[in-house]
């Protein structure tokens, strides 16, 4: 059989902000053997709804499974694969880089070129921050690694579709507000 192509996908899921929801999501990823590269969660514009961006890797079948299985979780309100949408993607990274008098200015130059910023300076190290799309973040980190990286933390990718609200978002919001979900017995 020929190799089935594996791709990276960016997905956004909206979920009710209830205790244990993240556990449900994480449990599903583990149980169904989904390959998740990064995950970032926080509040959305709608009270009571949190928003998760995650990056997954796999075949088209895997991606459909991730979407439909996640969507089955009762607390997941909606899920969207935005890989092929016009999206803005960002990641925030903090790097503690080894920088003494000898090479501090070199580091500062790189920070400048990448439009990153210096957050904290110590005698032999400094903390720098970069916000950007992944490829820019990657090459920045790679450059800094020449000086020695003492610590690093990455938030994982967050994404937002450009332009006005999608039809799906509007649908979701009405559902959340309870106008049209019709769950009557």
């Amino acid at each position: 059989m020929s190799e089935i192509p594996m791709k990276r996908h960016t997905m956004i899921a909206w979920m009710e902000d209830k205790p244990g929801v993240l556990n449900r999501v994480a449990g599903l990823f583990r149980r169904r053997n989904f390959n998740i590269e990064s995950l970032a969660v926080g509040h959305s514009e709608t009270p009571g709804i949190s928003r998760m961006t995650f990056v997954a890797r796999g075949t088209d079948r895997d991606m459909r499974q991730i979407q439909t299985q996640l969507d089955k979780l009762i607390n997941v309100v909606d899920i969207q694969d935005v890989t092929n949408e016009p999206v803005v993607m960002r990641e925030l990274v903090l790097v503690k880089v080894q920088a003494s008098n000898g090479n501090r200015s070199q580091v500062m130059q790189i920070v400048d070129i990448y439009r990153a910023s210096i957050i904290d300076v110590d005698l032999d190290s400094m903390i720098v921050q970069i916000v950007g799309p992944e490829d820019r973040v990657e090459s920045f980190v790679k450059l800094l690694s020449n000086f020695g990286i003492a610590e690093m933390v990455r938030t994982g990718r967050v994404a937002m579709v450009r332009g006005g609200k999608s039809e799906k978002q509007v649908q979701m919001e009405t559902a959340v507000l309870g106008h049209s979900n019709g769950n009557q017995q």
Binding site: M15, E16, D71, L73, I74, N75, V76, V77, D78, M172, A175, V176, G178, N181, G182, N183, Q184, Q185
Partner: peptide
């Protein structure tokens, strides 16, 4: 309660 409010569950 008469109704349920489950925005993520629409079996109907």
């Amino acid at each position: 309660p008469e109704t349920v409010h489950l925005p993520g569950y629409r079996p109907n």
